[in-house]
Each structure stands twice: as structure tokens, then as C-alpha cells.
Design a protein around this nucleic acid. Structure first.
Lengths: 153, 153
DNA sequence: TTTATTTACATAGCACACTATACAATTAAA
DNA sequence: TTTAATTGTATAGTGTGCTATGTAAATAAA
């Protein structure tokens, strides 16, 4: 259980139960799947959530603005937007001033599911932190924010 | 910044900066990429890490044992093992008693990189939590363990 | 003993992350 | 003004997760 309980260096191993990276990865998969099940009825998938959040907050952004805000690679964003366009969640319009850029607009379908999507995401978060006190909860959030700041450099 | 600062319900939005799921997902991507860069010289990729950890700890396990320990789907494990076999990290041998099962053994190549891989993973964790006190660190780890327990049901 | 169920594994198909690369439009330098 | 560098987007290729499905071997039920 604890590395210090090992009786020799030879059998002392990297412990996945106390590795931050390992735990983060495991958590991420569980959150992702929890969200997937809840938003499936809405016709969206977890990978579309960040872009939807940004566009619900402010419709009509360019791809590069979304890339900046969501901290994903440009190619990832382009592919995600392709699927969202295919699924009737967004349309891409020409930018009036910049011939390279395109402006992303939400369709009525995407606008309509906003509140249900918020509810689904909140449910996942609440379930995950059900046994946390309010103080623990905000401390956990703060720890994660700090970690992200550090890793983004 | 804070939902309570919004002056009306209408413009109050789900905040990605305080959503546990959003933060976990972002963290996971950053850890993943940090590890990727460090273990690339070793000839392995982050998705192989969990299986390698389990096999470094105990060589010669079946696929179903790994699936159980790593909490991934059987298909995910099978595909990961396919790539590991292709990359010369493991070999699959017939199980002496069970004709369905196969036993996974590490190759010398996989055994040889163990210590360097531990070092790489430790570096990522230490970098991510560089500004955490020992107490904060263990609290963070405990929060994540609790979250995983809850989400696994 | 024959049949049904369960178990161990493989594969197909898809989502979503990445790097590497290409190209056209804009902006800066010469 | 012509050329060079930068910017916005798209696509190809790959890794790693998922679900759904198929198959052979082992076990349970009949």
C-alpha cells in the first residue's frame, strides 16, 4: 500500500495509487464517461462540451478564439467543429473582414439544449463530489486550477 | 469570474473555471502531454504506462487481470497490448491451463526502461505539484482517490 | 451427454487528443 | 511594390479511450 512498507529497494515500485498523473487520468475517464451517458439523449458528446460552453457564453467566435480559450490544438478544434457541423450544432460563416477566418454560430438545436446540458454537467460534478464538504470542494477546485496554471507554464 | 457576480440569472453561465469535470479533463491532457514528451526517448507512449506499471510490478499476468487492475475496457486493453506487442514491449504466450487466456510477459527491452520511466513519471508529478506543500499534496491525492472511488460506484 | 451460459480475447467503428503538413489570406520587411 | 513572414484553417496519420459484436474455450444446466 505504502512505498515505505516495502522491505527492500528492489521491490519498491512506482505506486499508481499515489501518482498524481495516474489518478488524474483515471478521474478524467470516469468524468468523461459519466458525462457521456447523461448528454447522450441531448445528441451531443463530451468532446463538444467545451466548444458549446464557450459559444453559449458568446456566440459567433472564430476558430482561433476558441482554440485560445479552450487550450486545445488548432487541429483538434477543427476536427471537433467538423463533427459539430455534421451533427447540426454549428454553422461556419465567412468572416466579413478576414478572408482566412470563419465565424462559428450555434444552430437553434444547440441553443435549445443549453440548460439541459448545464444540468447534466452539474449532476456529474455533484455526484463526483457528493461526499465533499463545501470547503473541501473549493479546495479541490483550487488545487486543480493551480496545477493547470503550473503545467501550462 | 464568479457566478455570484452575475447580475441576473439570464446571463449566469456554467463556469468552466469552477467545473470539476472541466478542470479534471484539462489537467489530464496536460499531464498526458508532459509524460509523452519525457518518455518519447524511451520508445513508449503514455497509454502504455498503466500496463507497464502493472507488469513491472508483477510480470506474467493475463489480459483479464490487467483489465481488472487498470479499470479499462477489455477492448481498450486488447488494443493497447497489440501496440505494445508491435513495439516489442511484450509477448503473449498461451496459458497452460486455460485455452482462452494468454499470459503477457515483458520483453528485456520493456524491463530495461523501467527505472527511466519511473523517473520520467515522477518528474511530471513533481513538476505539476511543485508549489504544493507536502500536506497539500497528500490532501490533493486523497481528494482524487475519493473522487475515483465515488465515480466507480 | 447434450445444450446453454459464461468467460477470455479479438476486431470494427467511432470520438477526440496529438503532431506534421499544406495552403490561402493577411501583414511586415525589403 | 515585390518578397518574406505570419496567421487562420484544413487534412492526414496516429494513439487511446469507448461500444458493439464475434468466436472459441470453459463451465453450468438440462
Amino acid at each position: 500500500m505504502n512505498a515505505f512498507l516495502c522491505n527492500s529497494y528492489e521491490i519498491m515500485t512506482f505506486d499508481h495509487m499515489t501518482s498524481a498523473g495516474y489518478l488524474v487520468h483515471h478521474m478524467a475517464r470516469l468524468f468523461f464517461e459519466g458525462l457521456r451517458k447523461r448528454i447522450e439523449p441531448l445528441g451531443i458528446v463530451p468532446g463538444q462540451f467545451p466548444a458549446l460552453l464557450a459559444l453559449w457564453q458568446q456566440d459567433g467566435q472564430t476558430q482561433s478564439e476558441l482554440v485560445e480559450k479552450l487550450d486545445v490544438e488548432q487541429a483538434t478544434m477543427a476536427n471537433t467543429l467538423n463533427r459539430m457541423e455534421r451533427d447540426g450544432l454549428i454553422i461556419r460563416c465567412k468572416h466579413p473582414e478576414d478572408g482566412r477566418a470563419k465565424i462559428i454560430y450555434l444552430t437553434p438545436k444547440a441553443k435549445a439544449i443549453r440548460d439541459d446540458a448545464y444540468t447534466a454537467a452539474t449532476e456529474v460534478n455533484d455526484h463526483a463530489l457528493a461526499d465533499f464538504s463545501n470547503e473541501e470542494r473549493s479546495q479541490f477546485i483550487e488545487f486543480m486550477q493551480r496545477t493547470i496554471m503550473t503545467l501550462r507554464k
